[in-house]
Design a protein around this nucleic acid. Structure first.
Length: 878
RNA sequence: GGGCGCGUAGCUCAGCGGGAGAGCACUCGGUUUACACCCGAGCGGUCGCAGGUUCGAUCCCUGCCGCGCCCA
């Protein structure tokens, strides 16, 4: 599009066609290096690292929101003269990526990963990544993300892998990483351990079955929702103070089916009030039972394999899936007469693997853990001491609840795609953690741990590993800590907390000063988007139809801190309408010779409209700055929208038309129009980068708005002139009242009407008569002028009388209705004010300015009532 | 069960102690010196319910009802 890029002298095309222009525009920005950061520059650093999307992923609305907000922040800082870095990249997404490649292999009828071996499989994943991974990167370009592509990183690239092994080694040596046999959340679908936060708890309708262990006096009734675990029971527990079972504590009871004899133990964990007061204990398959087992030194047999199939129980149920076994065992016990009660459905909470949806099976296994206590404490301290500030602040409580009660983190995953745990085991039971520059022990019998690390381990290092750590690079020196982190509140625990733990540990300082947590995007009725509901909207479709700017504007306009936003295609269409409006204002301005480089007219030469719009520009600029500093994207965007459309387009552009026709004001108007538009486009650029680039370069003849300076008090607007603004408000009121009268009288807008306006001079509005006549199509009153309709408009400056010669009788009924409505409103106003003013407590206790305000309203209401009453009385009878 | 948040116009949401707002939708009228992806005018709300504090409550407090999310 380079040759079609509008220049200052050329006319803009009649329409903005984003699809034809955006791609080339983006490439030009990248080629010219606008997004490249330079640590050697003396400009202050501003750095945001991207929340790394999955290498398997494609752009969805969540990314679009995240990226839009980040881009707004970084583009604005760049314009403010910062050395702004938005660093892009992706994470390797261990489980997701491995699954994608395994599915592709299966679909192609290839042998599975176990058949080809680890090395060959990992090679295949890299091949897949080279071919079809990272499609999201191209989609980011479509959105206009101003990222520094020269610094793109990947969690499995060489540098980041070095960062991972460096941290692992250091934490291992510091005793913060350890290996232990623990009961972990096991996903039978993934055949891997997962961490606590990868488990979703959901209410399910199951069954609660009560059964009798033992016989006669030596028997107890226990209840369970997972009867199949009875194969792994190694005790029955009762409360120590429970008289009912005192005689049994210390004895053994014979189990049905297995015939094993298990002890009855006393433990405080048991709630004597719940059920029978006796609990079966399966230490290898339940977290609470595991703790009981440890206290009483119970055996911990595992009775399932890694896929959730019963194994090693020595019963006929071996080989049966856990749910199949649940039914089979229940039936067998029923036949034995051991089922004493059944509750079905029994609603209870069950943990599910968040990735596959399969119920978690707690499993005793040897895993690697991070001892989080000291790390979580320092992450918490960073927020407590204000070194990192969460926005919105309401999220702090959630944050503290989590970091102050965090459990040790399971970091090993039984996968092949990821950072392999850098620990070698020797033939004599040696365990050696190998640092990044160390040679692993070689020789007979040595082998490396087969597990890989949780992906969040490497993405937790992202704020500094991407800047070159552990090397001491110029980037690291300049951009750490990062300025802000922007992400969804849904990954506060997954990611933000981890980055803060690692950052404070490895770098000695929290990784970012601010954290902005945005909400989620929902459908037009506030429902979560999901494939099964069929309400998913693809951001790429929206950009195809309405342009990237329209999508970005919609998101920015809807993003209030801490709350989710609803989005529908209609709203994106509305944003597109806004961009069209901007286009047309600028087109108008250019056609009239608007010139942002011309000096503003001397203060004495400015019209009321000039003063008003320049003052408003000042207010809007200040408000926009304030709101964006506070991450109030929706309000900032809304403010710009309102200014551009309801003030600049609807009023200033209209009022300036008569100014442009007057020799005395034409040049000044061209300067003001150019000036205001220039500043507005620059303020909108971070939100809608493409169209503002096209319009601003056309308006100014300069190279790009990307590196233009952000408007400041020195170069945008003028001090607010309250008197001029009040007169503009009066003009708007008179115009609106005339329009209203015309509408209700059925006078077509386009029809010129002869009119006499009196009182303008006394109201201080004499200078506005040309604009009033132009915008209301009011002709001068000739010698044959005969008013057929008269009405008064109360302005702040005084009453203005409008007499019209409508060349015919007016619609008395319509006029009566209109006046009646006005009268009712004025009377209501009077009554409300009256009520307050006659209340001595109000006049005594309310602040003086409030009382004065009510008095003024009261007086205005009385005047209106009198005026309208007189007008009504003067109307001819219907 | 604990915590957080939300119930304001048909829809989605701002406002949060002194005159109820926006966008979309809707009704009516429009070939205006840029714009029908538009312009102009209008309709539409006991601000979830019940108490309390206050001269004054959509706004603060308490309780209740309904909804959402997080944690257990």
């Amino acid at each position: 599009m380079t040759e079609t890029l509008p220049s200052r002298t050329a006319d803009l095309p009649a329409k903005w066609n984003p699809g034809e222009v955006e791609g080339a525009m983006y490439r030009r920005w990248v080629e010219r290096g606008y997004f490249r950061a330079d640590p050697a520059s003396d400009r202050p650093a501003f750095c945001i690292v991207i929340p790394p999307p999955n290498v398997t992923g494609s752009l969805h609305l969540g990314h679009a929101m995240d990226h839009t907000l980040i881009d707004v922040l970084t583009r604005r800082r760049r314009m403010q003269g910062h050395d702004a870095l938005w660093l892009p990249g992706m994470d390797h997404a261990g489980i997701a990526t491995q699954s994608v490649v395994e599915r592709r292999m299966a679909a192609a009828g290839e042998p599975d990963r176990h058949a080809i071996g680890r090395e060959a499989f990992v090679e295949k994943v890299w091949e897949w990544k080279a071919e079809s991974g990272g499609t999201i990167l191209g989609q980011m370009e479509r959105l206009g993300d101003g990222v520094d592509w020269s610094r793109e990183r990947f969690t499995l690239d060489q540098g980041l892998s070095r960062a991972v092994s460096t941290v692992f080694k250091r934490m291992y040596d510091d005793g913060l990483i350890y290996r232990a046999e623990r009961l972990v959340n096991w996903s039978p679908a993934l055949r891997s351990a997962i961490s606590d936060i990868e488990v979703d708890h959901a209410e399910v309708e199951g069954e609660l079955v009560s059964m009798r262990y033992g016989d006669g006096d030596a028997s107890v009734v226990v209840a369970t929702t997972r009867i199949e675990t009875m194969l792994g029971d190694t005790a029955v527990a009762v409360h120590p103070g429970d008289e009912r079972y005192r005689h049994l504590v210390g004895t053994e009871i014979e189990m049905p089916i297995t015939g094993r004899r298990i002890p009855v133990v006393a433990d405080d964990y048991v709630d004597p009030e719940f059920g029978s007061g006796a609990v079966k204990i399966t230490p290898a398959h339940d977290p609470n039972d595991f703790e009981v087992g440890r206290r009483h030194d119970l055996p911990m047999p595992t009775i399932m394999d890694e896929t959730g199939v019963i194994a090693g129980s020595g019963t006929r149920f071996d080989g049966m899936d856990r749910f199949e076994a649940r039914a089979a065992i229940r039936e067998e016990l029923r036949e034995q007469g051991r089922i004493v009660a059944e509750k079905r459905p029994y609603v209870h909470s069950v943990g599910h693997c968040s990735r596959t949806g399969v119920p978690i099976e707690p499993r005793l296994s040897l895993q690697w853990f991070v001892r989080v206590e000291p790390l979580a404490r320092s992450a918490g301290d960073a927020v407590r001491e204000g070194r990192t500030v969460l926005h919105p602040k309401e999220q702090e409580k959630r944050f503290f609840d989590w970091v102050d009660n965090m459990h040790d983190w399971t970091i090993s995953r039984q996968l092949w795609w990821g950072h392999r745990i850098p620990v070698w085991y020797g033939p004599a039971g040696e365990v050696v953690c190998v640092g990044p520059d160390e040679e692993p022990p070689a020789g007979e019998g040595w082998w490396q741990d087969t597990d890989v690390l949780d992906t969040w381990f490497s993405s937790g290092l992202w704020p500094f590993s991407t800047l070159g750590w552990p090397e001491e690079t110029p980037d690291l020196a300049k951009y750490y800590p990062n300025s802000v982190l922007v992400t969804g509140y849904d990954i506060l625990f997954f990611w933000v907390v981890r980055m803060m733990m690692f950052g404070t540990y490895a770098m000695g300082e929290t990784p970012f000063r601010d954290v902005y947590l945005h909400g989620l995007i929902r459908d037009e009725h506030g429902k979560k988007m999901s494939k099964s509901k069929g309400n998913v909207i693809d951001p790429l479709d929206l950009m195809d139809a309405y342009g990237a700017d329209a999508l970005r504007f919609t998101i920015a306009r809807g993003s209030n801190p801490g709350t989710d936003m609803s989005l529908s295609e209609e709203w994106v269409a509305g944003s597109r309408n806004f961009t069209t409006k901007l286009w047309n204002i600028t087109r108008f301005a250019l056609s009239k010779g608007a010139d942002p480089t011309a000096p503003l007219p001397a203060e004495a030469d400015r019209t009321d409209a000039d003063r008003w719009i320049l003052g408003r520009l000042t207010e809007v600029r200040e408000q926009t700055d304030e709101l964006l500093e506070a991450y109030q994207f929706a309000k900032a965007t809304e403010g710009l929208y309102h200014f551009a459309w309801d003030e600049l387009a609807d009023w200033y552009v209209e009022l300036c038309k008569t100014q442009l026709d007057e020799a005395a004001t034409a040049d000044g108007t061209r300067a003001v129009l150019g000036h205001v538009l220039d500043a507005l486009l620059r303020m909108l650029h971070p939100i809608t980068p493409f169209i503002t680039e096209a319009l601003w370069t056309a308006l100014t003849g300069r190279e790009t708005v990307v590196t233009a300076t952000w408007p400041t008090a020195q170069d945008a607007g003028a001090p607010v002139d309250a008197a001029a603004s009040a007169r503009v408000t009066d003009v708007q009121k008179v115009i609106t009242e005339v329009r209203r009268f015309r509408t209700e009288q059925g006078l077509p807008d386009r029809k010129s009407v002869a009119a006499r306006l009196t009182g303008l001079a006394d109201a201080g509005l004499a200078a506005h008569e040309p604009a009033l006549r132009f915008l209301n199509r009011l002709d001068a009153a000739g010698t044959d002028f005969a008013a057929t309709a008269t009405f008064e408009v109360t302005t702040a400056g005084g009453p203005v009388t409008v007499e019209l010669d409508t060349s015919g009788a007016i619609d008395v009924a319509a006029e009566r209705a209109r006046l009646g409505k006005d009268l009712a409103a004025a009377e209501k106003e009077r009554d409300q004010a009256d009520k307050k003013l006659t209340n001595p407590k109000f006049t005594e206790k309310a602040p003086a300015d409030v009382v004065d305000g009510i008095r003024a309203r009261h007086a205005t209401a009385l005047a209106d009532i009198e005026r309208i009453g007189a007008r009504l009385a003067a109307l001819p009878e219907a």
